[in-house]
Design a binder for these strands. Structure first.
Lengths: 119, 119
DNA sequence: TTAAATAGTATCCTTTTTGATACTATACAA
DNA sequence: TTGTATAGTATCAAAAAGGATACTATTTAA
């Protein structure tokens, strides 16, 4: 691999994924399809309304998700992954896989250290 | 794709890549192989010593890079990607590719908006 | 008249991240 | 004795991110 560091676009992708809640929000939408604001809020444990709104807006700005407002009272707003947004799936999958392996890697490292100390 | 959001390990991978300088540092090490501290500092434009040290330590803690100190004066410390760290390459490549395309996507969006406004 | 439901805003505060700057140790060279 | 090179620390300040809480609008139902 030879990506010229000066022309690096990794951060452009990274910028979309970071934020304490974005990957989880995306996974929920990818798994369950269209979701209402309140459904997401219930699914993403611990998130505040402000944070959820903010993350959703940012994802919407990048065309990763779509927001549809129904003119009703009480309001109904639905969010879903766009076709374009689906192009992130392989990356999320790769990161998940790497992350899963990395968890094991760290575990092994920790056990090794513990073993060494007790000997 | 069905990653259970509750078991999501995306952030574990993400956590290693984020930080304003990490991808660039990694790309430099991947491209040029082993580098001294001062070489990296020259390569990564605009980074302060403190930031470089911090990012390198964090990457080292995760076994992504290796740090070798030579007992000399003036000091010599070399950094390089570990074998394990190389497993991140495909992910960086995928993100770079996605990011490159996303830059185009945003350009097109912007042009469309500009065209609409002027008509 | 009051309460409930939904999808938000607004305000303030805390924590984390990043940055600027100055400082340190050590051996050698002038 | 002063300066240089390298790889850092230490300290303080600024900016960004995240969070708690209260507030809003609107219609229907009780």
């Amino acid at each position: 691999m030879t990506i010229e560091p000066e022309l690096c676009k990794v951060e452009d992708a990274l910028g979309i994924l970071v934020g304490k809640w974005k990957p989880i929000i995306l996974l929920h939408l990818m798994k369950n399809g269209t979701q209402r604001f309140s459904e997401l809020k219930r699914s993403v444990l611990g998130i505040t309304q402000k944070m959820l709104t903010k993350q959703l807006r940012e994802l919407e700005d990048e065309d990763i998700i779509e927001r549809v407002v129904y003119p009703q009272v009480p309001p109904k707003v639905e969010y879903s992954i766009t076709e374009y947004g689906k192009s992130l799936e392989p990356i999320l999958a790769a990161m998940h896989e790497w992350g899963t392996n990395h968890t094991i890697h760290k575990q092994q490292k920790l056990m090794k250290k513990t073993t060494e100390q007790s000997s």
